[in-house]
Design a protein around this nucleic acid. Structure first.
Lengths: 340, 340
DNA sequence: CTGTTAGCGCATTCAG
DNA sequence: CTGAATGCGCTAACAG
């Protein structure tokens, strides 16, 4: 009997019309106090909850945000999601999470599903620069905020951290610590972050007139780092390995350990991101801290602002990064250099 | 103009009624081939996508699953979610993710929101045993599968891994490796997994007639492990520290490192879960591997089965665990024991 | 302040 | 096989 109780039931039982009930629930118009109380009471009695689905059909708003990331099991994205979810939840929004596994076709499929479900907005981290569908259609039929990655050429909204200067700070520190030859292992090259960091590296070697360096194209994961350094004779002859992110650095260090190369004594290794484990890693990782959680929460904040103001304030926020020096690097002297 | 295109538009443009369109979309009834083709064609032309929201209002099914976990930024839960999401996505379902932060009040709030949004089912990891609301109401008005944690006394559906035997295997191994005195650091005691593991430990010390042991109540996180071992004089005088999960073990090892205690030479430390970082940790962690991803995907599979068969097959799946021996433990000889 | 009414977009009887 | 009509539960004019 307590089955499917609707606004109608509580209207009847309260002796008012359904619109009055709607009004006391949504506080859209004034209702006589006694009536309001009576209604509230029967709502309690019947344990009624409005059907948000029906409400959404009418209003066109679902209070639901879609979020697309490559992989939730990557701690970087997990923090991003946490930041977004925590903000959204506080504001009464829910989050539908989708893993794209870096696959553009899958991204497109997911976006279409999300669109059909009538989300109010989209938080996106993926292959933005190449996804024509997103770039040409989605972006102006739905509020979208790009997290961590962004269109370079389009005027979408985004929240990033300043990878270029973060990497430059790191490199300048390494230079000051007497490192003169570098291997640079880049993450997925179609991402903005990898582009910025690589650019910083290129500018750095040019400015400091570094002669011995090498850029290796890899992916943002552990295995990729492991393979990369193995493919480069375990960095023999170089002072430092600069990695595109922490996961790559983990892989590099593990490979080096396995080959009997000591980090940092034989060679220094750096990461990027400062995910939770980097301080527990052994040696603890010298890296650049990105405010990952904040990127997530600021993205959510920005998205809600766009949704609620219903205006297209297309712009971005760029958060600062912070150099974190730990045990995986050391101040080099000539005698601590590897021989060729 | 290409604004808000509905089933009506495509009906008009195809020269048929909306019911016919609905039929070709859902293939619920046969439609003349030519007509069907014509309709399909104009669907393409107008780039029409059915409004899932409206559909849901009618059918009562949303193809959306709610998921509640304590904290997505914990790698354990991230893997769980990945497993569930990946299965659900393949089956055409979406996932709404909510972080409860272990707060029962928050859990209840989230469940109510999810209920209002008309999810088709719920995947739950949280304080099941104490949440009356969940236990008494939700569980029989909505398909629910408990992941990793479960009601001990209720006949709900669940997917777990066998913590009791996993822990027992680990302890027996340690005994075989000549460890004779133990500190046991438990995770959140209101969870089933902690209960099972602690029970295994209790049974173990009884059976092996271990005289020197200590059980310490903590939480399933890094800080908790760090503090716990500090509070116990860095385990002085004990052969091994058995931790409720890997995160606790990380904290313990870090604290020990900071105090100059060598793991495993002075004392062995074990974890539980085998999250991704445990093999990269230094020393790499001896632990018990839970099939976390599988717990997630099996839970999702079970939930969909319940939803689609619409029957209440309340039962559980218990997956096996596997001992993983790494560097944080060693085979002890008398001279490698710490003095009291 | 309050009740009546008309849809939101779609699936589904019920007649053809 | 197909069209017309009904209503899912709710909000938002529109009249009182």
């Amino acid at each position: 009997m307590s089955d499917k109780i609707t606004i109608k039931d509580i209207a009847k039982k309260s002796g008012v019309s359904i619109s009055t009930v709607s009004r006391v629930i949504n506080k859209t118009y004034p209702v006589r106090k006694e009536v309001a109380e009576k209604v509230q009471q029967t709502i309690q009695e019947l344990n009624y909850t409005p059907d948000l689905m029906a409400k959404s059909l009418k209003t066109g708003k679902t209070s639901t945000i879609g979020l697309i990331i490559p992989d939730i099991s990557n701690p970087f994205f997990a923090s991003l999601v946490k930041g977004a979810e925590s903000y959204l939840s506080k504001k009464g929004y829910s989050l539908i999470i989708c893993n794209s596994n870096q696959d553009m076709k899958e991204e497109t499929r997911l976006i279409n599903i999300l669109l059909s479900k009538k989300i109010d907005g989209l938080l996106f981290t993926g292959s933005a620069n190449h996804n024509k569908f997103l770039q040409e259609k989605v972006i102006d039929m739905l509020p979208v905020v790009f997290m961590d990655r962004a269109f370079v050429k389009t005027n979408g909204s985004y929240v990033l951290s300043d990878s270029y200067n973060g990497m430059l700070d790191l490199l300048n520190y390494m230079y000051g610590a007497n490192h003169r030859s570098y291997i640079y292992i880049s993450g997925n090259k179609d991402t903005l972050s990898a582009g910025e960091r690589t650019k910083a590296f290129s500018d750095f070697v040019k400015e400091k007139k570094i002669e011995k360096y090498r850029i290796y194209q890899a992916q943002y994961d552990y295995e990729s780092g492991y393979k990369a350094i193995k493919a480069m004779d375990c960095g023999k002859g170089y002072d430092a390995v600069i990695c595109g992110n922490d996961l790559i650095a983990y892989g590099v260090i593990e490979a080096l350990k396995n080959s009997g190369v000591n980090v940092p004594y034989n060679i220094s290794v750096t990461g990027y991101d400062d995910i939770m484990f980097s301080r527990m890693f052994s040696p603890s990782l010298t890296t650049v801290r990105q405010p990952i959680y904040d990127i997530g929460s600021k993205s959510a904040e920005k998205l809600l602002k766009i949704i609620e103001n219903n205006k297209k304030i297309k712009n971005g926020i760029i958060l600062k990064n912070e150099l974190v020096i730990r045990e995986s690097t050391m101040i080099r002297s000539d005698c601590s250099r590897q021989k060729d």
